[in-house]
């Protein structure tokens, strides 16, 4: 039995979630290989080869993979799929985009966003915004799986897998890259951060994020998140959104500021180890999941908190 992890490649590096998806692949059992698809991604392939427990790294290098476009990437994955029983990728935006395309080309049902492996064919995944957990058994010969990275421990470093070049699949030429607007930040990446501080609608402006949230984030070395309401209102960029349809985080400490606690938001953060809520409404639903609740006006509490840290 052998499983393939399709790494998330950013330029010449791999996303840290790759280590976690490797752990999920190892839990299924059998050998685990990694596929690196990128353009000028030798360093990414070398990094993947160092993950402990990996048998070999397949490396396809072609300009077609530079921007992670779904159509060429799916065709590449399908071209190597014959050798594998399960194909896994992190349930981040690239995995969500490309893996269902792979599944349909292979005529199998994808198992989306698993949080645990019960048996080689049986997995647990959240449904209804995490208000229910479904245990599902796949009857397809080949499994196509996306993995909720926060639910798995990162595989260790220390491997020395061989890197094998594989040829690119023909580019179907259905879509082309126009441009990208990436959020620049020196803060840790949201999904991997140990501490996350998120602001909601109550922040009322970007300036208030800058004045009240960012200084605390910087003192704590924390990532900054937000509710959909704050993102919708344009206070912060879309990739800050935590929740059912945004990012799922599970840090050691999650601080929710001026966020009411709608089920869609809770879906993205309720597996955090310690939750703090700061809200001026003592009946806000966020307090039902918070380990420590502070009923206060954020505009008074946050400057005080920054002082106290």
């Amino acid at each position: 039995m052998a499983n393939l992890v399709v790494a998330d490649v950013h330029g010449s590096s791999i996303d840290e979630s790759t280590h976690k998806t490797v752990t999920a692949a190892l839990a299924i059992g059998g050998d685990v290989d990694i596929l690196i698809a990128g353009s000028g991604a030798d360093d990414a392939a070398a990094a993947a080869a160092k993950i402990s427990g990996v048998r070999k790294v397949l490396h396809a290098d072609d300009p077609a993979y530079a921007h992670r476009l779904a159509e060429p990437l799916a065709d590449l994955i399908v071209s190597v799929a014959g050798d594998y029983d399960a194909i896994l990728k992190t349930a981040a935006t690239t995995g969500k985009n490309v893996m269902p395309r792979v599944a349909a080309l292979l005529d199998v049902m994808q198992i989306s966003e698993i949080v645990s492996v019960e048996a080689p064919d049986t997995f647990v995944r959240p449904i209804y915004a995490g208000n229910a957990m479904a245990t599902v058994k796949s009857n397809d010969a080949k499994k196509v799986i996306t993995v909720r990275a926060t639910s798995f421990k990162a595989a260790e470093e220390g491997g020395s897998a061989a890197v094998e070049k594989v040829s690119a699949a023909a580019d179907p030429g259905l879509s082309s890259f126009v441009g990208e607007e990436l959020t620049k930040s020196d803060r840790p990446e949201l999904t991997g951060a140990k501490i996350v501080i998120s602001g909601g609608r109550a922040l009322a402006s970007y300036e208030n994020f800058e004045k009240y949230i960012f200084p605390i984030a910087d003192k704590l070395g924390a990532a900054v998140g937000a509710s959909r309401a704050a993102v919708d209102a344009g206070y912060v960029p879309n990739d800050y959104q935590v929740g059912q349809t945004g990012k799922v985080v599970a840090p050691e400490l999650y601080i929710a500021v001026g966020i009411s606690g709608a089920i869609q938001h809770l879906a993205g953060m309720k597996d955090s180890k310690v939750i703090v809520a700061i809200n001026k409404d003592e009946d806000a639903p966020i307090f039902q999941v918070a380990d420590y609740g502070l009923v206060a006006d954020l505009f008074n509490a946050l400057p005080e908190l920054e002082q106290a840290l």
Binding site: I127, T135, V136, N139, L294
Partner: peptide
């Protein structure tokens, strides 16, 4: 015809509400 069989659907792990703190100092 379905390819996935639902073995069971269960409640997610419950999170209990914790405590309310009175001040920022107490929180820290």
């Amino acid at each position: 015809a379905p390819r996935l069989e639902t073995i069971k659907v269960s409640e997610p792990p419950k999170r209990e509400a914790g405590v309310k703190v009175e001040t920022v100092a107490e929180l820290v």
